[in-house]
């Protein structure tokens, strides 16, 4: 099963499933930004909340990519 391939500390999508997951992650990041913008008072609040969520979803994405990328 090869969904991703590793480039430094990032995992690049390789197959259709990989690209699907990547697009889903990007979609969530956009949604998180819009949601943070609606609830936060200032720009710094929006950015911190957004960075937090992006980092969290980045961890999840990387964990999945770790198990679905080939051994080097």
């Amino acid at each position: 099963m090869k969904w991703f391939e590793r480039k430094t500390i990032f995992f690049k999508p390789y197959s259709l499933a990989g690209w699907g997951l990547f697009m889903l992650t990007l979609g969530y990041c956009t949604y998180a930004f819009i949601e943070a913008k609606e609830h936060a008072n200032s720009l710094s609040d929006v950015l911190i909340q957004w960075v937090f969520r992006v980092a969290l979803v980045g961890v999840m994405y990387s964990v999945i990519a770790y198990f679905t990328s080939p051994e080097e």
């Binding site: 590793r6 430094t8 500390i9 990032f10 995992f11 960075v51 937090f52 980092a55 980045g58 961890v59 990387s62 964990v63 770790y66 990328s69 051994e71 080097e72």
Partner: peptide, 18 residues
């Protein structure tokens, strides 16, 4: 694997580093 473990390791220590 050393390289893959280092890559995932950075993501796992991301929040304390942040």
């Amino acid at each position: 694997n050393t390289r893959k473990s280092a890559a995932i390791g950075w993501w796992l220590v991301l929040f304390p580093l942040l």
